[in-house]
Amino acid sequence: MIPRHLLIGVAALLLLVVSMGIYLRHMRRQAGQFESSAADALPVTPPASGPTETVTLYVADDAAGALRPRAAQIPLPGGRQQRAEELLRALLRIYQQPGALHPLAPAADIRSIYLVDPGAAVIDLNAAFADQHRSGILSEQLTVNSLVETLALNVPGVNRVNILVEGKTRETLAGHADLTESFDVITVEQAGNQ
């Protein structure tokens, strides 16, 4: 049995935690009035000079085990392919910020993206992206889903995506997510909505 004085002590501490939580929530709500309206549309990095466009990135959240849509500004480039690359680099920068909800290695990068008609895209990652990726089914699948959904939902006409590492097919991203086959966009979206 847990001694009575310990129970009383724990109950008192819990009460204190709850009441401080309520107070904190109140404080945040007041502070939030300054922030919340604009926060979700904050640019990921200061936009480059010149025209920009607002896009929706699908950002992985490890704790929730899900993707969250997030608005971002990217430079408005000339071609479809360049736009796809800017898009995924903007996504990558979110994952490389300190305290990211789904951290990726600072050296991780997208080498290039090829848009192959009809309907296929090939994402070529650098070696550091895969070599330094955390190993685990959830973490790897979230990375894949985030890349595939962000690309497919912003680049019209992409319905399947292949992922290469340094221009070559690799068996898995970091021991789990299978990279030997292409990802079907509809399947990935439906899996994300489960």
Binding site: I137, Q141, T172, H176, A177, D178, T180, E181, A191, Q194
Partner: peptide, 12 residues
Amino acid sequence: VHASSASLRPLN
């Protein structure tokens, strides 16, 4: 516990 899908061999 949570359930989801993964492109994980050899499940396929």
